[in-house]
Write a protein that binds this DNA or RNA. Structure first.
Length: 643
RNA sequence: GCCAGCGUAGCUCAGUGGUAGAGCAGCUGAUUCGUAAUCAGCAGGUCAGGGGUUCAAGUCCCCUCGCUGGCUCCA
């Protein structure tokens, strides 16, 4: 080991005695405030501040304002929570406790489970540990020693983890009397945790496998200061106000009835019109892009589902019914009828691509625990289409769908994430077919220059897919659009077309949805706009409000004129004060209100007001109708003409 | 499906084993009012459903249904 080493940071460089800690070096190189330091990167590798530097290296501080710094804080807070839990419930066994997107969790094997009151006790114990400023001490020991250690502690889950670590040496961290197997790095001491909160308890299977024992997971979050914690908790409160289930009731969009059954929402008048508008928009956009509308039945013989592979691969998600001793499956997907429509005629290469579009209602048996408002239901309607094309057209078709999705989501103002899902274990078709299909999707993504994550083994049983995910008010991701490449069903149903050389050839098939399930899309959309839909989507676009009874006759005329101009208008002619009516319309998030009083009657005008509170001043009704036309008619994407 | 929590008036929520409450909404009446709540009165309940413990159950126990947060699974 060299007696002196050279340490660089930024443009600075200095020689130090070997074994200087990273923290000392950082402070010597630049008087960085101790309060800002969380950990340090040595040659790009995150390590503890106490890490001894033994060779020439480049160091870089990890500070409290970096995402990595926050992650380290949260992971350390998870350790503190584990320490507190072990103090209070010594029989609990520790498992893993990572930092996650907005906080951290730690899973414990503790059969009585934790109650909300337990969380308070654990929080109090954590406060004590934090007040003691217990240092996080790292130690490297051999795997054998580690096994002995965790054996003696009775931490059997740690032993299981140890068995899967290939290296001979592992690191352990100790703070107070709590020792955990951990890669690190950690904050210097528990006193650096300035603000944290335990949020919830939940069951979680060990290693995420439902055959394993169920552990008790405690979720929490931590920040470097109280202000950030408060802001986060405030965000959670605000998210509750945007919750589509709450807004669904408040705005009379949709609801559920216990007596109807789980996962079966009901559209109220305002929600039904919203869905209708979306459907109108969708039909127009599809026709514009060369899709043809088709409609299949809800029930198809089980024999057909056998042929498609659904009986083997999707049965547990399907509902069945028997009619005159014949078994029928209620459709969980729309593809079969579309396939039969394709097959109903001899197809020429000149006919392709054929694009069949259906607002298809499907039923899927989802496990009761996964149901969630409109976002996860048991019956839903997809804006589904199946494209049958020649292999040489596949790339253009997939790109066309990606363009379609992009243009549509832009209209609503959604940000989205793209994922590519590959072959799952339970699947049909040969390896070659899967490779070809996956390659086609990747090619299209690359052509479009889209960034995407790969989800291994997450594809549909008949083919790989590109998924587009939208976020709800809490940032949870929900799959909406999906593009699935399928060479298997054309094979199973012996689909062919006659090529230019007179040979019968196999078409490729693309399953795709743009908005996805309308129920889910409406749920996400409601949260996205917090219920304040743009005028073209708003169930009620204008509300006519009278100041006194004297203006009702004129108000009625205005209402009729708006309705005749095909706007969704309502009136509030009740004998109430204007402020009261405005408040109510405002809470209903109606984009425009028209105020009508003596002045308007006299001058034959209207005084519109935006939902934003902006008073537009008096104008002729025709002027206002003109303004509405500009803002409230269904928009069109720029795309179109068959791709 | 699994773990935990919850279910009281249309909605939001109080309610210590001892006579079911409030606010808002609704209805009736008064008020005729100019950009986010006028006043008064009235009505509204198998306390999710079923079973049990108890002299007595909204409250304690069991089962079912539903909802919520997660896990697993998926548009």
């Amino acid at each position: 080991m060299a007696a002196e080493i050279e340490i660089k940071w930024d443009s600075k460089s200095k020689r130090f005695k070997a074994n200087i800690t990273a923290k000392e070096a950082l402070q010597a190189l630049d008087g960085i405030s101790e309060d800002k330091l969380v950990a340090v990167k040595v040659n790009g590798q995150p390590v503890d501040l106490t890490y001894p530097l033994t060779h020439d290296c480049v160091i870089e501080p990890i500070t409290t304002d970096s995402p990595l710094g926050l992650e380290i804080l949260r992971h350390s807070t998870a350790h503190v929570m584990a320490e507190a839990v072990k103090h209070l419930y010594p029989e609990a066994k520790v498992t893993i406790g990572p930092a996650i997107e907005n906080g951290f969790y730690y899973d414990f094997d503790y059969s009585p489970g934790f109650t909300p009151e337990d969380l308070e006790k654990i929080e109090a114990e954590m406060q004590k540990i934090i007040a003691q400023k217990q240092p996080f001490q790292r130690k490297e020991i051999s795997k054998k020693e580690a096994k002995k250690l965790f054996q003696s502690l009775g931490e059997t889950y740690k032993l299981e983890i140890l068995d899967e670590i290939p290296e001979d040496t592992v690191s352990i961290y100790q703070q107070g009397d709590f020792i955990d197997l951990c890669r690190g790095p950690h904050i210097e001491h528990t006193g650096k945790i300035k603000a944290f909160k335990l949020l919830s308890v939940a069951g979680a299977y060990w290693r995420g496998n439902e055959n394993n024992p169920m552990l008790q997971r405690i979720y929490g979050t931590a920040f470097f200061n109280k202000k950030d914690l408060k802001a986060y908790l405030h965000f959670l409160e605000e998210a509750k106000k945007r919750d589509h289930r709450r807004l669904g009731k408040e705005l009379d969009l949709f609801t559920q009835f216990e007596e109807v059954g789980a996962g079966l929402p009901v559209y109220l008048p305002k929600g039904a019109i919203l869905r209708h508008i979306l459907e109108e928009f969708e039909i127009r956009e599809h026709l514009k892009r060369g899709y043809q509308m088709v409609m299949g039945p809800q029930l198809l013989k089980a024999e057909l589902w056998k042929q498609s592979g659904h009986m083997d691969y999707y049965k547990e998600n399907m509902y069945f019914t028997e009619i005159e001793e014949q078994l029928y499956g209620i459709k969980p997907m729309n593809c079969l009828a579309h396939i039969l429509i394709y097959k109903s005629k001899v197809r020429s290469y000149r006919d392709l691509p054929l694009r069949y579009f259906e607002l298809g209602t499907v039923c899927r048996h989802e496990k009761s625990g996964v149901l969630h408002g409109m976002l996860r239901v048991r019956q839903f309607t997809q804006d589904d289409a199946h494209i049958f094309c020649r292999p040489d057209q596949l790339n253009a078709e997939i790109r066309g769908v990606l363009d379609f999705v992009e243009e549509v989501l832009q209209i609503f103002g959604f940000d989205y994430e793209v994922e590519l899902s590959t072959r799952p274990e339970k699947s049909i078709g040969s390896d070659e077919i899967w490779e070809h299909a996956t390659g086609a999707l990747i090619q299209a993504l690359q052509d479009k220059g889209l960034k995407y994550d790969i989800c291994e083994g997450e594809g549909a049983f008949y083919g790989p897919k590109i998924d587009i995910k939208l976020k709800d008010a809490l940032g949870r991701k929900w799959q909406c659009a999906t593009i699935q490449c399928d060479f298997s069903l054309p094979e199973r149903f012996v689909l062919t077309y006659v090529d230019s050389d007179g040979e019968r050839k196999r078409p490729a098939m693309v399953h795709r949805v743009v908005l996805g399930a309308l129920e889910r899309f409406i749920g996400v959309l409601t949260e996205h706009f917090a219920g304040a839909f743009p005028a073209w989507l708003a169930p009620v676009q204008v509300k006519v409000l009278t100041v006194t009874d004297r203006s009702v006759d004129y108000g009625r005329k205005v209402l009729t004129a708006l309705q005749e101009a095909e706007f969704r208008a309502e009136a509030d002619f009740r004998n109430e004060k204007l402020g009261y009516k405005i408040r109510e319309a405002q809470l209903q998030k109606i984009p425009f209100m028209i105020v009508i009083g003596d002045k308007e009657v006299e001058t034959e005008t209207v005084t519109p007001r935006r939902r934003s509170g902006e008073n537009l001043g008096s104008m002729k009704l025709t002027e206002f109708i003109e303004l509405l036309r500009k803002e409230a008619t269904i928009p069109k994407t720029k795309g179109g003409s068959p791709h």
